[in-house]
Design a protein around this nucleic acid. Structure first.
Lengths: 201, 201
DNA sequence: TGTACATCAGTGAACGCGCGTTCACTGATGTAC
DNA sequence: TGTACATCAGTGAACGCGCGTTCACTGATGTAC
């Protein structure tokens, strides 16, 4: 029961996550099926449960990866925009967010689908991952509003993140309101473009 | 097959919608069950299908009512704020939106849950209902930006609606980020308060 | 090196369950004469 | 008014289906001596 076995075990775990990710990307988190997954992975259904308590736990594992990828993309966008002013950096990040959501709509949606009815709380690492995204936004905001107390800054960070999230969400939502991506981009610019040009009430 | 019969028929239809609404309000649209509904309504399961093609169609019927109630509340808020400036009116409407979402979270969520996977398109009246909400927002915006071409105005209307929607959504989402309502109110004021104080880029 | 034993990742048949929808039928109500 | 017939809202047993999860078991691999 040493390294080689542990490695095999880790390999299957990884395979399960990867295949689950593909399925969620294709059909959403609700389309994940234990039997189908086991068949694709070439293992028995039961094996899934030696690695995850639940299918829900598996979805969370996929979401962790998604958060990491999303975080990387946003970091990179803000790094690429280093020379620009804080307002432009905000917009650049929001556009990176949009691009990610557009490229992986179902994976992105799964991040926020974490059931509100669940009895057990969302794990801490999940909230941390979300917090990581926020921190990218807080930095240019602090530059725009140097005198704002930290608490206010946090609030505005959340507010702007949520605003962009809402624009992307309703913009991409196929049936209810589908809007061309370049219009979504302009909406983001409209809302974020106004930030910092005026004293906050 | 005349009035009395039609009336009885309409009564059952109404009863089904009302009971379905109560269930959705309690447990979300996904918790609606044909058999349970029939039992509550005191009819056979089959009867549901003489009134609605689908359970989904029933959900849409409930959503229509929800849209109407929501529309009424927003209209009223904007009517009450008649004396105020356009920016204050925007905020008043957004707060009415928040209050509604807070009071009927599951019904409100159901409005936007209309499945993206469905093969049949969302009916026109559904989009019209959403458009009705937008029109309330467009009016103060037109006042703030008298020179803006209509197309731009539409875009900004959508952008602001989506922003407020995003703030309310993530703010109310219990587990993932729960935030006290007064903070949600302040976030809305922060974002909307900046609108119109600066020339649009 | 060789043998006896322990561990535990992985197996997969079986459990237990709930659900949306259909359709042949009934019976109350209305119409025609 | 009374009778024969037509309509159709409502009935509910039955169809057909898929699913998450468990648990007694196996067999490959590692350890102890």
């Amino acid at each position: 029961m040493q390294d080689p076995v542990q490695a095999r075990k880790a390999k299957l775990r990884d395979k399960l996550i990867t295949l689950a990710e593909a399925q969620i990307a294709k059909g959403g988190a609700a389309s994940l099926r234990a039997r189908a997954l086991a068949q694709e992975a070439g293992c028995a259904v039961g094996a899934i449960y030696t690695h995850f308590d639940d299918l829900d736990a598996l979805v969370l594992a996929v979401n962790l990866r998604t958060f990491q990828r999303l975080g990387t993309q946003v970091s990179q966008a803000v790094a690429d925009a280093e020379g620009q002013g804080p307002n432009a950096r905000l917009i650049t990040m929001a556009l990176a967010y949009l691009r990610f959501a557009e490229a992986h709509p179902a994976l992105w949606q799964a991040l926020f689908d974490v059931r509100m009815t669940a009895d057990d709380p969302v794990p801490q690492w999940y909230l941390d991952a979300l917090g990581g995204l926020f921190s990218h936004i807080a930095e240019p905001l602090a530059e725009l509003f140097p005198d704002l107390p930290e608490q206010e800054l946090d609030l505005m960070t959340r507010a702007l993140f949520s605003s962009v999230h809402g624009i992307v969400l309703l913009g991409l939502q196929n049936r209810i309101s589908a809007v061309p991506v370049d219009q979504i981009e302009r909406m983001i610019a409209q809302v974020l473009g106004q930030v910092g040009n005026t004293p906050i009430s």
